[in-house]
Simulated scan of single mutants.
Amino acid sequence: MTLLANAGSGSILVTLPSNSSKLRQTNHFSIVNLAVATTCEVKRSCEFYDMHKELVPYVEAWSWQKDIVKKRKVLIERKEDYSDTLIILQHLPVYTLGTGSSEAYLNFDMKNAPFNVYRTERGGEVTYHGPGQLVMYPIINLRCHTMDLHWYLRALEEVVIRVLSSTFSINATRVQGLTGVWVGDQKLAAFGIKVSQWIAYHGLALNVTTDMTGFRQIVPCGIEDRQVGSIKGLLQEFVSSKRRTNESEYRINDNQLIDMTCKSLVQEFCEIFQVDLHHKPIPVGIAGGETIGSRC
């Protein structure tokens, strides 16, 4: 895998070998589990809202999801629910807590928070969202996939595990008893979902080029003995371990890294959930949206 990177004022190519030591130890879903990814006879349609280059305020995306869920419930009652939804974006800096999250994991006074803080209906503890982190919100009817929340979380983890392996030659694994995707003791992706009448929403957040500073103000996901990492950080570690020069300035092209990761996330999501993607314009009222008409 080759990345265009900047070294000082110039550009260089970084090639990560397919047999890297960080490779091919991933604990993929079994073929049996993947075979039940959909109960539909044909691939299900999936509306895709690609905002991966946009910084969207959290409350806008949150409200948007709930609006979609509300409309989907009406369609299900009418037996007219024919498609799922996938939203990919980045957020402005924000902290979110799950339904039962403890404020003990916040290293600041709620009255003097560094960023906005929202308690949501998703599961899980506190996490940070910010620029450089790709957030994927699938809104799917699990009746047409597998009606099992454990399966659904493992399937979302599998999407990220495959992205890291196939696109970046990074060996990622699960950790027994914990939700997430890990490389060593670094957590690269966090997951939190809400399911209402078998419609799942919220989703996953994958650190790509994220500034880790935001995580230092919290105990991410309530896990005190492990770190949070990013794809960029791991690639920089790999490059540093292989280079023999003393060049102090070296950075991977962030935009390219975000684009590559988004493309791979979408491909792996479609493969695991067996959906056909249909690009949709961004609705009015959502950051960057220019479509005239009703939302979603």
Rank of each mutant, 00 (worst) to 15 (best):
T173H: 10
R122N: 05
Y49H: 07
T38S: 15
G293L: 11
H202C: 01
S294H: 12
E247V: 11
A61P: 08
E249M: 09
A35M: 13
I139Y: 06
E103V: 13
W64L: 14
C262F: 14
S230Q: 02
F115W: 10
T26L: 01
A113D: 00
Y250D: 06
S45H: 04
I161G: 06
E290G: 05
G132P: 02
T179P: 08
L4Q: 14
S18A: 13
E247P: 03
K22C: 11
L156P: 00
L257M: 05
S63W: 02
G192M: 02
T39G: 09
S165Q: 14
S11R: 15
K43N: 13
S18N: 14
R154I: 06
H28P: 02
G285K: 02
K70D: 13
H129E: 07
G177T: 05
I193V: 15
G8W: 09
W151N: 04
L3F: 15
Y128G: 06
S83E: 13
D50A: 02
K70E: 14
S11Q: 15
N246G: 12
G180S: 06
T38W: 00
N255L: 12
S165N: 14
I218E: 04
T209A: 06
Q256F: 05
K263Y: 10
R119I: 08
V69S: 04
I286N: 09
I272N: 10
Q274H: 13
F238A: 14
H129Y: 08
G192P: 02
Y58N: 06
P138T: 12
L55S: 08
D276P: 01
K263A: 15
W198D: 09
L3E: 11
E237F: 03
L153E: 04
H91P: 04
I161S: 10
C46Q: 08
G130H: 05
W64M: 07
D259C: 09
Q197S: 11
Q65C: 03
T120R: 05
D84S: 00
L75M: 13
V59G: 00
L204W: 07
E41T: 11
F29S: 13
Y152K: 00
S30Q: 02
L235S: 01
L134Y: 06
R24T: 15
E247N: 12
S196M: 05
K242Q: 15
L234D: 00
V56W: 06
V56G: 01
T179Y: 03
L257P: 09
A189S: 15
S101C: 08
G124Q: 07
T261Q: 04
A190E: 10
D276I: 09
R154Q: 11
I68W: 01
E121I: 03
C221L: 04
Q25T: 14
L97V: 06
I252W: 03
K194L: 12
L178T: 03
L134W: 05
E121W: 05
T99V: 06
T96S: 00
M147I: 14
W62M: 08
Q186V: 01
V126K: 05
E290N: 11
F168R: 07
Q236M: 12
Q227M: 11
A205F: 02
A5M: 11
I87V: 13
G130Q: 11
F115Q: 06
T2A: 13
V239H: 14
A7W: 08
F269K: 09
L3S: 07
E224V: 09
K66T: 05
P114Y: 05
M136C: 13
G285S: 09
I68F: 04
L55H: 13
S241D: 12
H91Q: 01
H145W: 00
Y137F: 12
Y128Q: 07
K79Q: 13
Q227K: 15
V228M: 06
